[in-house]
Design a protein around this nucleic acid. Sequence first.
DNA 1: TCTGCAATGGTCACTCTGACCATAAGGCGG
DNA 2: CCGCCTTATGGTCAGAGTGACCATTGCAGA
Lengths: 244, 244
Amino acid sequence: MDRDEPWTIPLVAVTVDLAVFTILEDRFSVLLVERGIQPDLGSLALPGGFLATADEDLATAAARELAEETGLDPNRIHWEQLATYGRPDRDPRRRVVTVCYLALVPSPPSPSPGGDARQAGWHPVDEILADPGALAFDHGEILADAVERARGKLEYTTVATSFCGPDFTVSELRHVYETVWNRRLDPRNFQRKVLTVPDFLTPTGGSTTRNGGRPAALYRPGPAQLIQLPILRTRADLKPGAGD
Amino acid sequence: MDRDEPWTIPLVAVTVDLAVFTILEDRFSVLLVERGIQPDLGSLALPGGFLATADEDLATAAARELAEETGLDPNRIHWEQLATYGRPDRDPRRRVVTVCYLALVPSPPSPSPGGDARQAGWHPVDEILADPGALAFDHGEILADAVERARGKLEYTTVATSFCGPDFTVSELRHVYETVWNRRLDPRNFQRKVLTVPDFLTPTGGSTTRNGGRPAALYRPGPAQLIQLPILRTRADLKPGAGD
DNA sequence: TCTGCAATGGTCACTCTGACCATAAGGCGG
DNA sequence: CCGCCTTATGGTCAGAGTGACCATTGCAGA
């Protein structure tokens, strides 16, 4: 910067990007859109967009994009800020800083096309992560961070219920954990654990036979947000002889 | 937005703000600066500043500010992104989005004045948190988030060693935990636990009598970053009759 | 040499977890 | 209507981990 030239506050383009997860056909899935413009025309990417105005609140922007991309009411799903990515060359057209959010949604509607009328769809997370060039820009890195965040939050918080419908069984909740963690959990031990956590689940009083076999008790999410004695996905690995 | 007027990408001013923690005189402390300009002239605030240029990398900006504010080499301390705060009116002068980072530093040098030649100093965290209006803007909220993040990371990661010097004793590490968590830990149980965590601590082979009493073994940080079986700050609360 | 202090060694009861098996309660088909 | 299959839930046991507590050790200082 020329010393004689007065410094002015740099201004930057800001976007919000979304990592929206659900469980579809027993697979941990992420919402991706097909880019309708260059660069990376036709590539898959996380949905998102610029702030609508220079003084749009970040969370408002994220909620707007979330509603647009999923057709869901942001007040009724779990979403939270992930991180901000700010390498200057992450978009070759121009400098963009992106504030990323993750969302966990229950059985989703068919995704609706976004502003660019591009194809949106759910993709199995493990398939996308296995292909380093699958996503445009730095969205592969962002997705990996979001997946790890989601996996971790299932240990310490009650957000797993966000993947379930309004009423669910312990077995259905266990399938959420098994699908997100790629790990089989013992049905008995899992049930004993989650029913021990205070205010994790609230019994509805009803039951269901929708999964066949013995009728299962139904639950709703309880008021707790944190799990004080966490459900550790790696604990079984600590056993002698444990392989992964 | 007027439909007939073409939309242009909004540009926003971006800052990085720092929550830098240390332990000073047995107190969990945060680095604050005294504002040298309006608004809130004279108020305390977290240090930070605008991007130097429109295409300065976010992490580079954070490292630059960190070096300026603490006099420490960012390559030698633990720092990480906290979150991004983007309410449009958080600064009454103009719209500013701030990307916040937290840093954990060992026995600090005296803080150096920053660009505005304003006073910088270390303040006990609990005193600042206890006074809702202590900090300018939304820095009180940011500080609360950073404190909670720091406290949580001591459970699941090895970052507590960042508060120690190059070589430290288990007792000194325990004091870190006790100071950050405001909680007394049993010396024997703490030692047994941290020495059980794989690669948390590496014995130097030496010992020290600097704390009086029986000579204590010295350790350096081991290579581990995550603590698979976490050290839970709240576990003692789970005992029957436990009060907080 | 003795005392005090802090670190470390040790122990026990209790809690939590992983593995496993048994029983119960439905739905479905013959 | 009965038998079988499936899934959910009840129960148990051994081992790991934790909290509380006390004893011993190894230094420094008087």
